[in-house]
Design a protein around this nucleic acid. Sequence first.
DNA 1: CTTCCGTTGCGAACCGGTTCGACTCTAACC
DNA 2: GGTTAGAGTCGAACCGGTTCGCAACGGAAG
Lengths: 340, 340
Amino acid sequence: MATIGDVAQAAGVSRSTASYALSGKRAISADVRRRVEDAVRQLGYTPNAGARALATSQTMVIGLLAQFLEDEFAPAMLQYMLGVSNTARELGYDILLVSDADGTRALRRITDSRMVDGIVLLNVAERDERLPILRSAAQPGALVGLPADCSGVDVFDLDFEEAGRLMVDHLHRLGHREVALVSQPEHVIERGGAYVWRLQNAALEAATARGITLHTVSGSSRQPDVGRDLNALLDARPGVTGLLINNEAAAAALPTVLHDRGLTAPSDLSVVGRYSDEFARTFSLPYSSIESAPDRLGRMAVRQLVRRIEGEVAADEPHVVRFVTPELVDRGSTGVPRAA
Amino acid sequence: MATIGDVAQAAGVSRSTASYALSGKRAISADVRRRVEDAVRQLGYTPNAGARALATSQTMVIGLLAQFLEDEFAPAMLQYMLGVSNTARELGYDILLVSDADGTRALRRITDSRMVDGIVLLNVAERDERLPILRSAAQPGALVGLPADCSGVDVFDLDFEEAGRLMVDHLHRLGHREVALVSQPEHVIERGGAYVWRLQNAALEAATARGITLHTVSGSSRQPDVGRDLNALLDARPGVTGLLINNEAAAAALPTVLHDRGLTAPSDLSVVGRYSDEFARTFSLPYSSIESAPDRLGRMAVRQLVRRIEGEVAADEPHVVRFVTPELVDRGSTGVPRAA
DNA sequence: CTTCCGTTGCGAACCGGTTCGACTCTAACC
DNA sequence: GGTTAGAGTCGAACCGGTTCGCAACGGAAG
């Protein structure tokens, strides 16, 4: 493999001159620059990443910590990962994918060894064990998901409170008076998946304010369990005219459940989900939904992270906590409730 | 951040001694070893990955090239990625995730710059553009998927020919005489997804040998298109008593389609798919299927790759092409055909 | 004709590890 | 008692880049 020394020799200049010619950090005559560039082409020179990292303390790699837990719907995670990965590449960074079960040890390993310039955390829990480690790391961090303590990191998340209100208001406006919300499994909440009750509490508040009834249940993250959960809900609450789904697995299972019961949306039941458009297309979900915008959140997180890495943000500039405003994508699955 | 120099100083020894004490590559007195280890703990020393990579020419990182194409079902890809990632970690390697649309440039970038010790390629096409680059790279490569030319790389794949025969034989033995095979979209085949016709050709041969009729169609990779494809097939071939599904999206769409038509497996129609058990659980697919074993394939690829990286395989030892024998997971979706 | 300055290139040091050769010291052997 | 083997440690070189300080050079200004 050619080194910069080989390039310099081929171009008849010193190593430092070759380096400057390539980086443009000092003035170099046109003639020398051309000779160096020719040598690079001819030798097929590519800088050694390790050597460069050592010299510059920059690896041009971002660590992506994603956990694939039993009780979360893996295909939904993938979209966040791709949002992060694509944006990182656009900005010149590669992605070190860390899917270790033990996120804390892994995080310490990659930050202490200086393998990465920054960290993106997915599946952030209310009080995430990885956060203290991230705060004490030398590299900046960006989260997708809202923890209790946002200090020292940049945070991006969907405004789940607003999402909850939006769902309730939408059905209320159409005339619904008794609706049900299907959330994630208890496990997810116990583990600190705060977004679940953030949406749920806001929905409950909105329902109270509007004077309508909102039943809440948690659904499993797997089929066929989640199908049973949905059926049980519909059996137990025959008066329900609208369904709010904050659970990807439940959304994916719903078409079959409704079909089995001979129900059609929106004529028999109005449905509003909370998932991405990409998700809806992949699983052909015909329900209107709050766009969860995983690509956008991933993009925002990486953008801000790179700004910090590259020092465009003063180190003492306060960290941001930014919410994406939820938007309802209308797929025609809601309407006025059937006559009681 | 503490360097090995700091450790050495704290332990009162030279840098080289500290290094040897930690690596164990030379004899070190128990006393010195203890002092060095204490210093490491006290200073929280972690070796700098870039420096180590520079010195040893080993990064302990494996590049994972995965493409997320419009016409492939993303959730299925994820399982291969996780198989690779988990095995790599077990063996002490991290994963550099490369999902660039332009796989060739990305591959050249990470190999030339020596960011990785080895490469795993997913979505391997019949004549994959990335292969020539991989062959000329200094690092070894392992593929999940079978290209036309396997030279210079280790190859792992499901035995799709055997899978095709197995599917046909299984239904033939139960008494079926007219069955249909739903494959991937034309696009996938055109792009070189050889596994599609490897399975299909073997299935056709087996059908001919057994004297039964096999209709073949390609299904879309998205819903609702793939649902239409399935309906069109069932409309056009009313005599079909068995369905073979080599298309994840079609498998995921099938429950709804069958339900809409008032059909039940296996009483009205026998169904055999080709997907992983994990996939079946995630989407609650009730069909017997050929296990596609993504985790096992990922694991095999990484194991062999690491053996090559670590020189346990002589450089001139021939590369392997290894097929996983398909196994039918019985989920009770096949039976004797309904009376004609 | 000197002086000064901007341009351009070079040499050396440095980043933080690993590894080779050489040196010292002790114990064992003949 | 001298030789030798082996254990334990150190200094220096090296991996392949980047960057700082300095000097040579040429042209313009005085």
